[in-house]
Simulated scan of single mutants.
Amino acid sequence: MPRAFALNLYQEGDFVPQYTFEWCVAASIQIMHNLIDDAGAAGTWTDRVQQGELWEMARARSSNSFNGANPLGWAKVLTKVGMGPYAVVSIANYDVALRTAARAIAETGRPVGLVMWRGRHVWVMSGFTSLGDPDQFPKFSVTGIRVQDPLYPYGDVRWGPSPAPNALLTPKQLATQFVVRAPRRWSSNLPAGYMLVLPLAKA
């Protein structure tokens, strides 16, 4: 019988805001580093100059990027700076995407990137609640998603408010902003779907 299960990588101080309206990918890289590194304040990435450098790194690795940083560049930088390997995946079914993300967090102990707003913004998924432990129940169901939106507290007029750091959203709440990526946003060979920047097991 599957029981309630919860996993959360977040610790106080892990959240970092994006310092410009363009730098969501770079801020997310800093947040993901902080979620992975439990060394404490000395190892926390929050610096504005570093965030700009990470954005330039991601932008340089992003093809057809509208002069910005896209998820392919995001995954490449995560891997390059030692948090990888990460890969960009697109999943057609919403519930399967949530299970895939939750299972990856449980298996690797590393966060997942969420491509939001049809490809215009990114959040970090830092944990989840579920009915059933992913290790024991392949068909477990995700009941809550822990998120970090680097745009907090500004939000967006069209897409809605930014959840507070470490907020626990229901799948229905997340679905208002986590939607199928529009293929026209940037060219890749990935099909349209719910896009994740997914941690892979280390070789």
Rank of each mutant, 00 (worst) to 15 (best):
E107K: 09
F21H: 15
I91V: 09
K202N: 13
N166I: 12
R61N: 12
Q173E: 10
P183R: 12
S141I: 13
P191D: 08
G155W: 03
P2R: 03
D135I: 13
D37V: 08
A167N: 03
Y19D: 03
T79A: 03
R103Y: 12
L9N: 00
V89D: 09
V115A: 02
I29C: 09
G155A: 01
V88G: 04
L169T: 05
Q18Y: 10
S187H: 14
L151Q: 15
H121K: 06
T79P: 04
V77P: 00
T20Q: 10
K76D: 10
G109Y: 13
V197Y: 08
L190T: 06
D156R: 15
A106Q: 14
I36Q: 15
R3P: 09
L190K: 05
L72G: 04
W159E: 06
Q11T: 10
W159V: 09
P165H: 04
D133M: 11
A42F: 05
G73C: 00
R185L: 12
A106E: 00
A69G: 11
A87W: 04
M195R: 01
G13K: 04
A104N: 06
L200G: 14
V88S: 05
M195I: 05
S162L: 00
I105Y: 11
L7F: 13
Q50A: 08
P171A: 00
R59Y: 03
V142I: 03
P163M: 05
A60G: 14
P71I: 08
W23S: 12
A167V: 11
E12I: 06
W23R: 14
D135N: 15
P163D: 03
F66M: 15
S126D: 00
Y154K: 13
G113Q: 03
A87Q: 15
W117D: 07
A201H: 09
S187N: 10
K172C: 01
G160H: 14
V180D: 11
V115C: 00
T44L: 14
S28I: 01
G43S: 14
V157S: 08
K202Q: 11
I91L: 11
G109E: 00
F178G: 02
P17K: 09
G68C: 01
P85T: 07
V179E: 14
P138Y: 05
I105E: 10
T170A: 03
M195C: 09
F21Y: 13
V142Y: 01
A41S: 02
E22C: 09
Y94A: 05
V81K: 06
R181Y: 01
R3Y: 10
W117R: 10
Q18V: 01
S188E: 11
P71D: 11
A87R: 14
D135H: 14
R110D: 05
A167F: 07
V147F: 06
T129G: 11
R48I: 09
L174S: 04
V96E: 13
A175M: 08
W186D: 13
R118D: 14
A26G: 01
G119K: 01
D37R: 07
A167D: 02
L98Y: 02
P161I: 03
Q148R: 00
I105R: 12
E22H: 13
V96T: 10
Q173G: 04
L9S: 00
N93P: 10
P199E: 01
G132I: 06
M116C: 08
